[in-house]
Design a protein around this nucleic acid. Structure first.
Lengths: 159, 159
DNA sequence: TGATAGCGGACATACTATAACATATCAAGG
DNA sequence: CCTTGATATGTTATAGTATGTCCGCTATCA
């Protein structure tokens, strides 16, 4: 199990790679990676942070890419539907996926101080929750797992 | 790890016990268990289902217990703050706590067919997510764990 | 008596998300 | 060429979720 998000890294490359990975997958699957969708993904990749739909809409508006809520929501729906982004229910906000295209059950580590969001793998098919669910005969199809706390950087800063 | 919610049980007693347990704890802790708060808890206990704040508000309005959103939200905030109810982020809705007063890290099993919600224990201090978080130095303080799927009853019905 | 604190009533507003309908673009096929 | 169908975007309006603020009531306590 790995996480992505808190380590130092070449963030410019990170954005370029993220966009180009999605670009490839769209080509492979015959999906249209339009300018609005591309730009929304770039915005999401910018900070490893969750952005609200209206934050994104504001940016799009500044850039002349759309001005009404459905524009942002449709782009976000596209990205989420195809696994290129995720919704953080706790924040009513969205983040770029750390490993676009791979099917997974993502879990998130949300720093309450700097708002960065890291993605981890949390397959619910095993683990204690899965056992518990199996015990009562419940069949898990999807799962929202969002942990909130302090990231390594902010623990140092707070101390 | 136990779950509560899908098993058959004496539901009348279930509500009475839930309310009276909270009543006791409020007395013990010097909290005011007012009529609005009590009624909201009863509504939440009624169906082991998640209710939206405005569903609750509608009921309160019918009963002359309040008519404006803050009335419902304040009662819900009180219940959530003291661990007598939980918010289901995935649904923007609320459920009564299955074991009021005990401090815990709850997880939820949400049936997408009948909308019933069962509560399980999902302590994040161990398990794979905890390991993963520890691996990157993230300190988990709270966690939202909400699994969606089919409850035992609805699996039978769908087949 | 006056001060304080908690609760609830009421009004207004902010934030999040979708419905519904119109228009544009483009590729496939007659 | 032109029609058709599929997908994407533009636009208006509205639904659904949540909070800010001010006020008055009541209980309590110094």
């Amino acid at each position: 199990m790995e996480t992505t998000g808190f380590e130092r890294h070449d963030h410019g490359a990170c954005i370029r790679e993220g966009v180009s990975a999605v670009d490839d997958r769209c080509r492979a699957q015959g999906l249209q990676f339009t300018p609005v969708r591309r730009r929304v993904l770039e915005l999401l990749l910018e900070g490893h942070r969750a952005l609200g739909a209206y934050d994104i809409l504001d940016r799009l508006r500044e850039e002349g890419l759309g001005s009404q809520p459905p524009v942002a929501y449709r782009a976000l729906d596209f990205l989420v539907k195809h696994g290129f982004a995720h919704k953080i229910e706790r924040l009513n906000a969205f983040v770029a996926c750390a490993c676009p295209g791979e099917s997974h059950m993502p879990a998130f580590l949300i720093c309450r101080n700097c708002d960065k969001v890291a993605e981890a793998e949390a397959d619910m098919r095993d683990g204690r929750l899965a056992e518990s669910a199996a015990g009562v005969g419940f069949r898990i199809e999807r799962a929202v797992v969002e942990a909130e706390g302090l990231c390594p950087n902010c623990q140092g800063a707070a101390a």
